[in-house]
Each structure stands twice: as structure tokens, then as C-alpha cells.
């Protein structure tokens, strides 16, 4: 068990810096998800924690010990890879046992640990099989098992569910969460899937272009996205962004002027409500309607050509494509962002 401390981590390949100073503190037993689009540096960050990439600047401490210059095996971590990275020529048992064998643990202890993990993961019937004889979900479990048997201070997950089909992914997600709770091992989990991040994370780090844009619990991040990037990345369908300039006069009538410095106004689809033409923030034309059963998504085009998505809880929407409607925002759910995409803090 250990906490992980990242202090101003930087990574450069030659003259190009790809990670521009990330700091975070991960508490003992916490599950932190690093989420972001591909190429944002999330995997690189994780691999630096694992010791698979060198750290250009900054420090990484696991359990209070700076590990920058330690080999992966000396860091007391275990890692689950996207493609599982199981040794194809070894049985499930040997795959899980390999690390213990290298560590010089006695045969009987190895057998006990592997069997425990196998029981926990319901892998007992498959211990003698080779990875190629297993299904995707089972391979995923073996990869987990390999991590568990070593009882490390931290688990590192690198998109472990990406290779599974959608249904299995949901199931494994729950299993990973339950397992992590049960073992209480500090975990860093990398994914590009915001739903996965939301459901798994105790706290999440949203990364973009080598920068940690926001760190917080899923709901904090969702309810108060710090930047337009976070606002657009977390939540599906994403937040609507409107040009603040055109809304200024309407907004000024409605209340305080904290939106003065705003360049962009963001509104989540569920916070847009319909009203009659001319009575809301703006008017828009219905482009098309997605009836999803429990809810309906209205895709609208504003006169300025912006797209606005409205999430309507009413499963039986009566509007028709081509119809013009007015849109208003649920009060206090307007997010204002400046020219750099940063949240404009409310001023008093």
C-alpha cells in the first residue's frame, strides 16, 4: 500500500517536450483514472510511473520513495497492458507465476498465491491452458491475476479494456472496480473512454496535449469543467459551445455580468430547455431528432451556424425537423470561458 506523488513531471523526446509538468498526489488505496484523447501523453505518464520510460524532469515517489532511477521491478508496481502482454508460450499458471519465480519465491508459496488469485478471478479451470486458448475476457483476467499475485504497492492499468467488446467492457469495468476496492491497492488507470473514467475513478486527471487540465472527482469535473477541453471531453453528448459576444445583450438583461470577459459560453445538453421563439437566449432550427427511448436528443442549428444539442427527458418529442424553436438555459448552468479556454471565475 502506498501513495504516489508526481511532482512537475516532464518528458521530452529530443527537443520536443510532450509532457509539460504534471503534478498530482494519489492517496493510498485511491483509484485515479488518467483520461484524455490519444496522443495526450496519458500513457507516457503511466509508463514513466512504471519505469518503462525515463523521466526528463520532476520526480515520482511511490510510498514516499523517489523511484525515478529505479528499474521497473524495484518499484513494487504491477501493470496490466492493453493487449494483455501474456507470454504466449506459457500456461496461465506460469504467466501468473513468472514474476514470483524471478523474485525467488518458493514453489509452494507461488502455487498458493497463484491459486488464490485464480480463485478470486474465477480462473481456476484454465490454469493449465495457454493464452491463445482463452477468450478475450479470460485473457484480461489473467493479466489482472499476474498483477495481483505480486501484491504490489500500486497497480498500473494501460487501457486494459480497449480490446474487449462493448458488453464485456462494462462487465469487466465493474469487476476491476470491485477488485480494487477489495484489495485496496493504489491504482493508476489510463483510458481514452470518458464513460470508463467516470464510472471507475475516485478522482480523475483529464489530460490534453501533455497538460493535466483538471484533477478532481468525476462529478466535480463534470459539474465544473475547468476548461473548454474538459467540458467538451467529459460528457456525452458533449457540452454545447456558443459565441459569447452574440449572447451578451441577452445575458446582460438576465442578471450579473460575470460573463463580461467570456469568449465562449458552454451549456450542457441537459441544461438547455425549449421555449417559444424569441423568448430564450437564442432561436434555432431543428436539424434532426434522435429518439433513444429513455430520452430524446434534439440536434439544432443556430442562425450563426452553431450546432446545439438538447437532451430532452421527454421520450415523445413533438417537434419536427425544420421547425424553429427558442432555447433557454437552466439558471446557474452556464459556463463561461475566456479566450484561452479557461473557466472565467465568478467575480463578486
Amino acid at each position: 500500500m502506498a501513495e504516489i506523488a508526481l511532482r512537475d513531471i516532464r518528458k521530452s523526446y529530443g527537443p520536443t517536450e510532450v509532457i509539460h509538468g504534471v503534478s498530482a498526489d494519489i492517496a493510498d488505496g485511491e483509484l485515479i483514472v488518467i483520461v484524455g484523447p490519444s496522443g495526450c501523453g496519458k500513457s507516457t505518464l503511466l509508463r514513466m510511473v512504471a519505469g518503462l520510460e525515463t523521466v526528463t524532469a520532476g520526480s515520482i515517489a511511490i510510498g514516499g520513495r523517489v523511484v525515478n532511477d529505479l528499474e521497473p521491478r524495484e518499484r513494487d508496481i504491477a501493470m496490466v497492458f492493453q493487449n494483455y502482454a501474456l507470454y504466449p508460450h506459457m500456461s496461465v499458471f506460469d504467466n501468473m507465476a513468472y514474476g514470483l519465480k524471478i523474485a525467488g519465491i518458493s514453489k509452494s508459496d507461488i502455487a498458493a498465491k497463484v491459486n488464490d488469485a485464480a480463485r478470486m478471478l474465477e480462473l481456476e479451470p484454465y490454469l493449465a491452458r495457454k493464452p491463445r486458448q482463452l477468450s478475450g475476457g479470460q485473457r484480461q483476467r489473467v493479466a489482472m491475476g499476474r498483477a495481483i499475485v505480486r501484491s504490489p504497492s500500486a497497480f498500473l492499468f494501460d487501457e486494459p479494456l480497449s480490446n474487449l467488446d462493448a458488453k464485456l467492457r462494462v462487465q469487466m469495468r465493474l469487476e476491476i472496480k470491485a477488485l480494487q476496492r477489495k484489495l485496496g491497492v493504489t491504482s493508476l488507470y489510463v483510458t481514452h473512454d470518458q464513460v470508463e473514467a467516470m464510472t471507475l475513478a475516485d478522482r480523475m486527471i483529464v489530460m490534453n496535449e501533455g497538460v493535466a487540465e483538471q484533477i478532481g472527482t468525476p462529478l466535480e469535473v463534470y459539474n465544473n469543467p475547468a476548461t473548454t477541453f474538459v467540458a467538451g471531453f467529459i460528457g456525452s453528448p458533449p457540452m454545447n459551445f456558443l459565441d459569447a459576444e452574440r449572447l451578451r445583450s441577452v445575458l446582460a438583461r438576465q442578471g450579473p455580468n460575470r460573463l463580461d470577459r467570456a469568449v465562449t459560453i458552454g451549456i450542457r445538453p441537459e441544461h438547455v430547455e425549449r421555449t417559444t421563439v424569441g423568448n430564450g437566449l437564442l432561436d434555432a432550427t431543428v436539424a434532426f431528432i434522435e429518439a433513444l427511448g429513455a430520452e430524446t436528443l434534439l440536434h439544432l442549428k443556430t442562425d450563426a451556424g452553431e450546432t446545439v444539442v438538447v437532451r430532452s427527458a421527454n421520450p415523445e418529442e413533438t417537434v419536427r425537423p425544420g421547425e424553429r424553436i427558442g432555447l433557454k438555459a437552466v439558471p446557474d448552468h452556464l459556463f463561461a470561458y475566456d479566450a484561452d479556454g479557461r473557466r472565467v471565475a465568478s467575480e463578486d
Binding site: 509508463r47 518503462l52 528499474e71 521497473p72 521491478r73 507470454y87 514474476g99 524471478i102 523474485a103
Partner: peptide
């Protein structure tokens, strides 16, 4: 290789 290195090989 990475898995092996983490396993301590």
C-alpha cells in the same frame, strides 16, 4: 518486454 521487465526479468 515491458511485462517481462515489470516481472523483474
Amino acid at each position: 518486454v515491458e511485462a517481462a521487465r515489470i516481472d523483474g526479468a
